[in-house]
Simulated assay, not measured.
Amino acid sequence: MSARTIIRLLVGAIGVFYCVLAVSGFASLSDDTNVGGGLRGGNDPDLLWGLFGVNTVLGFIHFLLGALTFITAFTADRSRLMPGTMAGAFGVLFVYDLISLLAIDGTDPLAINTADLWLHGITAVVLVLTLVPARRTQGDRRQRQSLRSG
């Protein structure tokens, strides 16, 4: 199994994980939540699986980015646009997480906590790694085309 295939499978699994995380987060929200329901940020009583903050907006963000990340697993060999875009999106989310945890007092609108910070950061790094095989694949195609025409 090649490195490209392993990275594509990893990116696909990450996309599925984010979708499962979002759906589980939606399922755990109720009118009885103390802080995490609605558009307000969550705190310790409103953690999913004892780790991740839960609220509606973060659930939508996780579902959207998870679905796009899953699609990225299938397009990573053909284009650097999707992996680059998704790495950028998770990078922006990581920076938001960092600023939120360091500077925002009180509840955060996205219910960000340290586990979310690590999850988004690691995901951004993995998606950056998908750019390397895509770049090699495009370089290989150009080399093959130049050999054919020359």
Rank of each mutant, 00 (worst) to 15 (best):
R148H: 13
I7V: 10
A73G: 08
R78I: 04
I6P: 00
L110D: 12
T114R: 11
I112F: 11
C19K: 01
V23N: 01
G106Y: 05
G66C: 04
L21R: 14
L102A: 13
D116M: 09
Q145L: 10
R78L: 04
D105Q: 08
G37I: 06
F70D: 00
T130V: 12
I71W: 01
H120I: 11
G88M: 15
F60D: 02
V92S: 13
A89E: 03
L101N: 03
L147Q: 14
N113E: 05
V92I: 15
A73W: 08
V95C: 14
L119N: 14
L10D: 01
P83S: 15
R135P: 00
D140R: 14
G121C: 12
V92D: 05
L101M: 09
N43H: 03
D97S: 14
G12L: 01
T75R: 05
I14R: 00
S149N: 11
T85M: 06
F52T: 08
L102Y: 09
A13V: 02
G37D: 11
F94K: 05
S28D: 05
A124V: 15
V54F: 01
I61T: 14
R144V: 03
T72M: 00
T72R: 01
C19E: 05
T72I: 01
Q143V: 04
L117C: 12
V128E: 08
F26C: 03
A115N: 13
H62W: 12
L10C: 01
